[in-house]
Every structure is written in structure tokens, then in C-alpha cells.
Amino acid sequence: MTTATLERGVQILKEQIDAPTAAFFSSCVHCGMCADACLFYTETGDPAYTPINKLEPMRRLWEQEYTLVGRIKKLIGLSKPITDEELGEWSDMVYHACSLCGRCSMVCPVGNDISYMIRKIREGISAAGHAPEGLIGATTRAVKIGSPMGIRLHALQTQARNIKESSGLEIPFDQEGVDTWCCCRPWR
């Protein structure tokens, strides 16, 4: 696996920015209606949980990299670069304070698909190594052991044998053309 660094996070985040994202950031008028639609804002009353604010690092990166004015500002040193600490802070905002329910995208008067962008900023934040620990662990286990829950092959085979004994059903392993597909294969 590639090591997670700030540079990689920023690079991945840059690659995530597409024409819809640019149109969305260009259209936001800071009206605050997405906050009224967000359960994390309505339940806490914390304005930081306003959906569009959860994308602030990505918005700055878009401005700095993909707009003329932003590039000039970056050139003369007027823009605030994205830091590792900031992406770490924003991890909470986009993983713990968003369920991707999409209500913000449904009420935005200019039609910004905010949850679409939350999905994108998560790519950059995880590439920078700031995904929630549980997710990093599950991914590591899936790659190293073959299962996000950490179930090893022999445990799976034992379980399959038990099911076969109790139900009498054949459970095929690594066979072509079968109806059942076991997706918890170990990584080899």
C-alpha cells in the first residue's frame, strides 16, 4: 500500500475535482439552507456542521488550483495552503458528521449536490491518512487477512464445514461456475 501523506491526500483531492464540483463551488451563495436540512446541524445547533462548510478544504483547493483569481492569489502568497492538521480536523466533519443522506443536495436552491462532494473529499482525507481508525483497520485487515472483520481462511472453512454438516448443503470453495460467490478470499 502507498503511504498516506499530505502530498498524496492533496493530489487525490485535486484529481477528485471535476466540472460538477467546480460548478457547485461557483454557485454557492452562503444562504445556509443546507444547514436547515442537515440532522447534524439541527440536532447540535453548531454552525460548523453546515453541509457546505464540511467541504471548506476542498473548496480552497479548487479555488487555488482551478480558478484564475485563485492561482494569482496563490502566486502572490495570499492563499492559505491546506495543512495536514486541517485535513485531520475535517475527518470528523466528513466521516462522523455526515451520513451521506443527501437532504442538503435535495434542498439546495442553486442545485449543488453536496453529498456528492462529501464522498469526494473523503477520498482525499483518507489518502492523507485521516480516515477513521476503524475504517483504516478494516481496510488493512481486508488487504492483509482477506476479511475486514479479520476472519482467516481456516475459520471461514470451518464455518462452511459446520454449515454443510448442519444443513447438508455443499459449499464450494474456489470453484468456477458455481452460484454462490464467496467474497472473503484471503489476499495472496
Partner: peptide
């Protein structure tokens, strides 16, 4: 952000189209 007068049509189009 005055650009929204034009870009909101692009945003709505992309959001509706992708949905």
C-alpha cells in the same frame, strides 16, 4: 459568488442529470 446567476443552471443540470 455573483457567478451563481449563470452557474446555478450548470449545477442544477449536473445534479439532476447524475441523479
Amino acid at each position: 459568488k455573483l457567478t451563481h446567476a449563470f452557474t446555478l443552471f450548470i449545477s442544477r443540470w449536473y445534479t439532476g442529470m447524475m441523479a
